[in-house]
Structure formats: structure tokens, C-alpha cells
Design a protein around this nucleic acid. Structure first.
Lengths: 341, 341
DNA sequence: TTCTTTTTCGGAAACGTTTCCGAAAATTTA
DNA sequence: TAAATTTTCGGAAACGTTTCCGAAAAAGAA
């Protein structure tokens, strides 16, 4: 496992190490023939420049870091695939770290990556991240950071996110247009901005269509299937069942559907269900789940491009990319066709 | 974004850089007071040792690489969490790369990581990986590599995997014991060893319980829900429906269930379904899906420990860890309770 | 006190590159 | 042919550490 170094090649060819370096870095001041000779014998000798040494010398690591709250769900996994695609094309390595929805772990991750001298950072904060001040300070000091997904629209930094309010609105309006009269919204935690945004969209739709306060309700549920199940249990217990529910995400929606079915309620005939942040399971369950598809792959690519620009050109103005979703209507929110409206 | 270096601290305190280094590396030959003084002022000045320089100097990167075929499914994500846990405790960074089930991409990933001088590698090969010879050569040259999940039981290298034959056997035997008489197996691709192992287990159960050739069948399906759906379409078309199906994995099983239901067949009354490599969705769908749970987290931890040992102590004998699964019986494979057997 | 041993520290080489500077060689111009 | 310019290359410093070696300082033994 002995590595061939630049010196070995230099000695073999009786040239200076600078020439070897020049040959490998496509510098202008080297004769074409010597360059080719060098590259050829280097190849033969199995020489590869040592990235660590390059990094030390250039003070650049060609690594970037990605910190996500989790990648158990396909959401961040898909985003990362997009990120990786862009950076691999530019010879960057993508270091991924996950925070397990833990703000301390997140801070440790970020510090580890900064310490590892990554050239830039993509951060999707955890649920209750209280590290934003620290991140912003780094950003303002010129450290290239792009935020993703779970940040406020007015954060003074470059970021890529779905317009959650808008698509919360569309999801809700779809239910209204289907003729459902009593619509509840199971929101995520209220300290999670993507949740409050979606809730804002929900309220906006209620206002636009002049639905009275008696006919809608916002219930703080959570992120997971079990949160959805718990809420349904309560609603059943309280005999307070709407005819449509817009859930914070597909996981919650699936919990809701499960619980409704096990209590003999039919979806969508008794209660219509709308999810959000579509998962691949949406098509597989019965009934198929209506949801808002997020363009995860494009989110990843866009985020990566923003960071790449920040790394190469430095920051000028923070740039915010608001992406659009797709409303996928499936069985779970289609009103019985016999009902005209 | 100017980094404070060891020299700055040395100048400030009027000591040599070697002393600073000694203070940070807990060397014995430094006075306790100076050490404390150094650590204190270093802290004040915001000095952190530059990992790149450390790596260059020590010829060790404290990075390890993990190459997985994908992490869209929760399986590898969970394993990675286990891996990360162990390595973070030992101050290693975990570089994750994914191959998108593409053997060329996989080779590129591995080479990139080796070039990046990671101290060790965990590899879960892609479907049709034809790079095993290359990996084994590296391993035999002393490069620390541990294989995971998708490798042959007799591969001459350290590895961690589920005993797929055994749990394929148990899954099948469960169906037999429930009284199902005609049992089909939807296998994965035949060049995927975890699939052939599970199939072996299926056959073994058939042999043990003396089920005649007319009453079981092995159909090569694939890895995804749509593969399961396609097979069911064929079976319906050919009027060739068993009363139980053991699917290669949960994804296939969910496709199967969906297709059965949309054709008016009930699960498990008409056809019982057994999955494998349990997903969290198993509990959420109707009917709840019986499956073989794989101890992903422990797999990750165990793999990481093996690699850590290999890195620190060098290789002696290749070690193979065969993990056990858990048979989780749920609604999809429980025979009507009125039937005694 | 003087000599030996131990503790503590500084100097310098080494890790493998890139890059600046200046010089030699090759080419062009006068 | 000589001078000026351009091309090509080597030497050496720099990146920020660790570590070896030997010396100074402190402590212990005689």
C-alpha cells in the first residue's frame, strides 16, 4: 500500500517535481511532448496526485458538506442525489452528515465539517434548530452556506425551498373544489416553519372561499404516522369528524387513513384525505393518496448550483429559489362521482 | 475566514510549535502547566488543528468511505446511521457515496474514495457489480475493506450479512404452518446473491415439508413494487393463483397486494402475502404486512466495528458476521382464525 | 557540591503538493 | 550575428501539522 509520489516520477524522468505538477495541472508553461511523456510514465508507475497534499497546498478541499435532519425518509435522500450529481460533475466530494433531528448533533456536524475545511455547506436545519445565529454568522463572515427546505422565506442568505404557503393553499383549495364542506388541517409542529407556511395556505384558502369558523379546524399533530393516528382517535372519541383532512405530510396521512379504516370509516367516501411532500408509497396504498409532489431532485440540483456559485464567485446578493410542487390528485380525495357540484 | 494556525499560537506564547502540537496530542513530554496554558490561549484565539495538515503529516485521514447501491429505501439509511454512530465515537468522518445500482458508478466511487485516502472502506455492492475482483485485490493488498449485505457467504473477506437462506426458510415455513397449500415465491434477480439465498431457504422449506412440485413455484420478479404488480397480472391472466406468496422484499409485496386488491382478491383470505426486509410501511398498509425484520442498525454497528478493528490492528483472519432477523407476523399472512390446523 | 537521570522543550525534517521567481534554452527580430 | 523576446524548466518556499533528535533545565543521587 505504498503510494507513488510526485518525487518518484520526477526522479525516474530526471525532471523537477514542478514539471510533474505542471503536467498534471494543465499549465501553459510546459512543452507538449514533456507533458505527454510525464503523463504516460506517471500512468505506468501508477501515480495519482495525493488529494490531501493538494488540499493543503491549495487551501481548498474540494469537499462540500451536506447536513440533513435525517435521511430515513426518501425526501432528503432524493435531494442528496441531485446535489451529488452537480458536485460530482465538478470534481467535488459530497460529505453527508445527518443530525437525527437533534439540534446539538446538528451543531456538532456543522462544526466537524467546517473543521474538516469543506469548501461549502448545505444545511437543512433540524426541527428545533437553535443554531441559526451561528450559521448566519459564519455565512456573513464569508463562509459559503446555502440553506435548504426548512428555513424561513426571509432568512438573509441563499436558500432553496418549496413555496409551502402556496402549495398548502392549492392542496386545501382542491378539497374545497371537490365539494367537501368541513375540512380539518393536521399541521406539523408549530415551531417548524414549513408547517406554519402550509397552515397559512390552508387559512388563506378558507378565507378565500369564505368557509366559516365552524367548518374548519387546525390541529397540531406532528411529523409521523402515529401522530396522525392519535388525532383520529381523539376525533372519533369526540365525535368530531370532518369530511376532509389536509395532512402535514404523507406519513401523517397514512397514519390517518389506517386509523380511519380500522374504525370502519371509508376513504374518501366518509373522509377525504390529502397528503403533502409526496412519497412513493402514495400510489401503492389503498386508496391511493392525493399529495403535493415536491421536485426533490431539482431542489438538490438547484441548491448545489447556488453553492457552487457561492464558492467560485463569492457572495453578492443572497438568492432565494422558490420551487413549485405538483398537485397529484388520486383516489383519497376524489368525491363520489355521483355527486354533482 | 482566516484560519488561526499553530504558528500564531506559538508566537503569541513564545513557545515552539512542537509544544503546541504536544499539548494538543496529549503527549507525555510536556509540563502540565504549559499544556494548560497552551490549550487555554488556543481556545481563546479560536485555534483548531487543521485536519488536512494532520492527515498529510500522519498519512492517515480519519475518514472512512461507505459505498451503497442506493439510500432511497430506508434499509441502507438505517445501516449508515449505525455505521456513523460507531465511527463518530472514534473521531472518524464517514464519507457516503451511492452508486445508483450502477456498477461503473460504483467503481468510480470506490476509486474516488481510495484516492481521497480514506482509511478504510465499507462496500455494499450494486446489483450486477463486476468489480469484486478489483475490491478483493485491494483487500488482499492490505487495504481495509469490509463488505456488507449483498455478498456471498464464502467471500474471502470480512463481511456482515443476514443469513438470508435461514430467514427465507423461516418466512416460508411460517406460511406452510399457517396451512397454506400452494405457495409461490417471487424472487429477486437471480444474479443477486441475497435473492438466491432466500430462494434456497424457500426450497428447503418445501423439501422439509414434502410439498410436491405442483404446489410451489419460483418466479423471478425483481426489486420493485412494479415487478410485483406485473407478476400478479400474469398470474391472474393465466388463472394460476396460489394461496400464499413469499415476496423477495416489502416493496414487491406491496405491489402484489395493490394488484390483488384492485382485482378483487382479498389478502390474506384469498392470497396470503409475506414480505422480507421489513419497511416501516409494513404496519401502515391494509392489511398489515408480515415480514422479516432485518437488524439494520446493528448491522451498521457491527460492520463499523469490524472495519475499525481492521484499520487499527490490521487483518488476520477474515471475519464473517451472520445476523439474525425477526419474523413479524401480521395480518397479511394469518389464516382465517376459524380454520383449525 | 558534582554527577547522573529525568523532565521539558526547541529546531528541523518530513508529509506531497502548488506556485513564485528567476534562469536556461529556444525562437524571433533587427 | 547579436540582441530581444518567448518558451520551458528547476529551485525553493509555502501550506500546517507531527515527530525525531538532541539540548537545556530540573530533579535526584552520590
Amino acid at each position: 500500500m505504498k503510494h507513488v509520489t510526485i518525487k518518484d516520477v520526477a526522479k525516474r524522468l530526471n525532471v523537477s517535481i514542478s514539471s510533474i505538477s505542471r503536467a498534471f495541472n494543465d499549465k501553459y508553461d510546459i512543452k507538449k511532448e514533456t507533458k505527454e511523456l510525464i503523463l504516460k510514465t506517471a500512468e505506468e508507475m501508477g501515480y495519482h496526485p495525493n488529494p490531501i497534499a493538494q488540499k493543503l497546498s491549495q487551501n481548498k478541499t474540494f469537499n462540500i458538506g451536506v447536513v440533513v435532519p435525517e435521511f430515513i425518509n426518501e425526501y432528503y435522500s432524493e435531494i442528496i442525489i441531485g446535489i451529488q450529481e452537480v458536485f460530482m460533475a465538478h470534481k467535488f466530494q459530497v460529505l453527508i452528515m445527518q443530525s437525527d433531528e437533534n439540534t446539538d448533533q446538528e451543531l456538532r456536524n456543522v462544526k466537524t465539517l467546517i473543521n474538516s475545511m469543506v469548501d461549502g455547506l448545505i444545511i437543512a436545519p433540524t426541527l428545533k434548530s437553535n443554531n441559526m445565529d451561528f450559521y448566519l454568522k459564519q455565512y456573513q463572515n464569508g463562509y459559503p452556506i446555502v440553506f435548504m427546505s426548512r428555513v424561513e422565506k426571509n432568512l438573509p442568505a441563499s436558500k432553496v425551498l418549496l413555496d409551502n404557503e402556496k402549495w398548502g393553499f392549492f392542496a386545501t383549495e382542491h378539497l374545497i373544489r371537490q365539494g367537501y364542506k368541513k375540512i380539518y388541517h393536521l399541521s406539523g409542529p408549530k415551531f417548524l416553519c414549513v408547517s406554519t407556511e402550509r397552515t397559512k395556505g390552508f387559512k388563506k384558502a378558507m378565507a378565500k372561499h369564505k368557509i366559516s369558523k365552524d367548518n374548519f379546524k387546525i390541529i397540531e399533530a406532528g411529523l409521523f404516522a402515529k401522530n396522525g393516528m392519535e388525532v383520529i382517535e381523539d376525533l372519533i372519541y369526540n365525535r368530531d369528524m370532518p369530511d376532509a383532512i389536509f395532512c402535514f405530510n404523507d406519513q401523517v396521512a397514512m397514519g390517518v387513513i389506517k386509523k380511519l379504516k380500522s374504525n370502519g370509516l371509508r376513504v374518501p367516501e366518509d373522509v377525504a384525505i390529502m397528503g403533502h411532500t409526496e412519497t412513493r408509497m402514495a400510489e401503492l396504498i389503498t386508496p391511493q393518496l392525493s399529495s403535493i409532489f415536491q421536485p426533490t431532485y431539482e431542489m438538490g440540483k438547484k441548491t448545489a448550483e447556488l453553492l457552487l456559485k457561492l464558492i467560485n464567485e463569492g457572495s453578492d446578493q443572497p438568492e432565494t429559489v422558490l420551487l413549485n410542487g405538483v398537485l397529484n390528485v388520486r383516489e383519497s380525495s376524489i368525491r363520489d362521482k355521483s355527486v354533482e357540484f
